[in-house]
Computed example of a mutant assay.
Amino acid sequence: MNQEITAAEQDVEQGGRGLAKLNPAPRQAYEFVLKIDDAPGPFAMVKGTAQYDVINEQECGRIVPATGRAGRITSKEEVKLQKVSDNEYRGTVYLDLMQDEDYYGRGVCQWKFSGAGAMLKATGADGETRFLSFIEADRFVKGETETQHYADMGYPRESMDDYADYGEDAPEGFKPELREKLFSITLAAKEAQP
């Protein structure tokens, strides 16, 4: 196997982008907005990500010998979020951040933005609950919002280390005695003005 491909696969396993390259001049900019309501305390760690997937991996990706099929190609890129108030963060997401290219000598891989997400932690310490939220690309581009509700009892941590809390779409997803002790994270976007 090609050394460059082997190194790229190891990079992907460690959270890198492998052979994938960033577009040197992305232009499709959207303002990504994260709002927090009624949180039981502050969040020292607020990280944004944008996810991109290759939509034609069968024609362009590396064939996995065990299956004879091309593996999924995806990349999660950091979105730098700036704190604009105690409960609001903003950053820029580029729909065209990834570079379409022939990575494996089988054809040009075509990237598509699949959505944006956020991870919040109370102090950022190991073991704390990770409050996670994600908005799909079609809703993001239309300027719609995605709100998830979370129980205060998981802040700063659940009984399980590094618990991934994806929240619920509505307060009714929680038992009645918890519904008065919830907070929410809302994600939204709007096309950036040039």
Score class of each variant (00 low, 15 high):
I36Q: 05
A39N: 08
K47T: 14
Q58N: 14
K181W: 07
P42W: 14
A118I: 09
Y52V: 02
Y103G: 01
R69W: 07
L187K: 04
V54P: 02
E146C: 04
A39F: 10
G173D: 09
A188P: 10
A50C: 11
R139T: 06
Q110T: 15
V46L: 03
D37M: 13
Y52L: 06
Q82H: 15
A170R: 13
K80P: 09
L182T: 03
A8G: 04
P24K: 14
P42G: 15
R69T: 11
D37Y: 15
G15M: 02
Q58V: 13
I73R: 00
G61S: 11
F43Q: 01
L22H: 10
Q51D: 14
M98I: 04
P42Q: 15
E13G: 08
A7H: 13
G91K: 00
K76E: 09
Q51V: 11
G167W: 03
L187G: 02
Y103R: 03
Y155K: 00
K142H: 09
L95Q: 08
Q14P: 00
H149N: 05
G91N: 05
L178H: 11
A8P: 03
E4L: 14
Y166K: 14
P171D: 08
L187I: 13
M98A: 03
M119S: 11
L95F: 07
R69F: 09
S159G: 13
T67L: 08
K121Q: 11
Q99F: 10
D86S: 10
M153N: 08
G127P: 07
G18P: 04
Q193H: 12
F32L: 07
P156A: 08
N2R: 11
G18K: 03
G124M: 01
D169S: 11
A39R: 06
E128L: 01
V12P: 05
R69Y: 08
P65A: 12
Q51W: 10
G115N: 02
D38E: 14
F43T: 04
K21R: 15
Y150A: 00
Y163W: 11
F174Q: 06
D11K: 04
L97P: 02
G48P: 01
G117L: 04
Y52F: 12
Y104E: 06
A137Q: 01
R157W: 02
R179G: 00
L34I: 13
T6M: 13
P171K: 08
V54C: 04
I185W: 02
A151S: 06
L19E: 03
D53T: 13
L34Y: 04
F183P: 00
